[in-house]
Nucleic acid binder design. Structure first.
Lengths: 198, 198
DNA sequence: ATCCCCATGTAATTTGTTACATGATTGA
DNA sequence: TCAATCATGTAACAAATTACATGGGGAT
């Protein structure tokens, strides 16, 4: 399920140009998938070459033609086939958690800033989902509800977890561990404790 | 924070060969970061070229020399610098959620199988974290505890969410929507309802 | 017998990101 | 006047995945 396939899927719900498609991605998928123009435009060109979508250019004034893509019968078949055979991955790549793993090596200020920024991102995500939820009607498909709820649930626990556990990272060294070290400056002591193992 | 940088960070905790490093990645980072040999071995060669690690080959019987990498002072400085300047991303790329978004286009059996597989993966993750937690001592750094707890919390909500909301995806079409369609077979009806919009 | 563990790497391919290139219209 | 929205694309680059290539030792 690369960007190309997902574009095809989005077009299942109705024709669109590349620009609109990107907005759909941002609105509906932003909390679990991202796609930039650099992936979307080539993907649409590919799909058109493969006959999975058709393209019609609508002239505009003062800007490039709008190229409106519409899925074909072959495109529908293709998308359904992928949907039924590909094993969907769920991949998290978190530099944030990797950074937190090394919290003991960090300046407390920096650590606090990183935690704060992540919290901010999570709250943004929660707000975004709330916003799109307010536009829903009875027609809103179950799939859309499910993924939004999933995203909201994840963002909430992540934020809660950070808020309730951050003190473990920022707390002063416990006596037991400090006495095992040999430096009086807590910040350097932490670095040394780990550095000396190497 | 690419694989190269993370290898450097892992070596902060002690020397290791590429093979061991991969195992550390799997043990400690598997729930939020992945790295294969295809990334790790070239990364270590790079680090050695840059003087951030040293390499010593230990001959083995019947297998390639073990190349043991150790971080240098320059390597430590470099890693700390990155840790304090890079903005850590947190990126989820979930084909699973993308697939669920299109749940209405799916054969119920397939849908159930996909949900089940994701649940299985999440339970695996929970068990894995429990396992590594059982090896912890007083010496276990706060960072390791934090990331493991984070992973466990996320996996738990994700699994709970799927279990409590999957019925929304598998449920029979509500009367209101079914009457809007024109087919008697519920499975095809769902596909058509959406297909006709395009 | 067969599979997993150990242990290294390279090369091709896939995929996506970022920067570049253009340019009118609208609202603050 | 400045930023955002609309609208397209390409090209260079970065990064990781996958497949390939090799091979002994130990457990079931």
């Amino acid at each position: 399920m690369d960007v190309r396939t997902l574009c095809l899927g989005m077009l299942f719900h109705g024709e669109a140009c590349g620009y609109e498609l990107k907005k759909r991605f941002e609105e509906l998928f932003s909390h679990f998938y991202s796609a930039g123009y650099g992936s979307i435009y080539p993907a649409l060109a590919d799909l058109a070459d493969a006959g999975l979508v058709t393209c019609r250019a609508v002239p505009q004034e003062g800007r490039p033609d709008r190229k409106i893509y519409r899925i074909t019968a072959a495109g529908r078949r293709q998308f359904l086939a992928v949907l039924h055979t590909a094993q969907p991955r769920h991949k998290l790549r978190s530099e944030f958690l990797a950074t937190m793993y090394f919290a003991e090596l960090m300046d407390p200020q920096r650590l606090a800033a990183v935690l704060e920024e992540r919290l901010h991102g999570l709250r943004e995500a929660e707000r975004h989902i709330e916003r799109i939820r307010s536009d829903w009607t009875d027609e809103t498909p179950a799939g859309a509800r499910f993924v939004a709820g999933f995203g909201a649930a994840l963002a909430k626990v992540a934020a809660d977890y950070i808020e309730t556990h951050r003190h473990l990272l920022t707390a002063a060294e416990p006596e037991s561990r400090r006495s095992a070290g040999d430096a009086s400056n807590p910040r350097r002591a932490r670095i040394n404790v780990i550095g000396n193992r190497a």
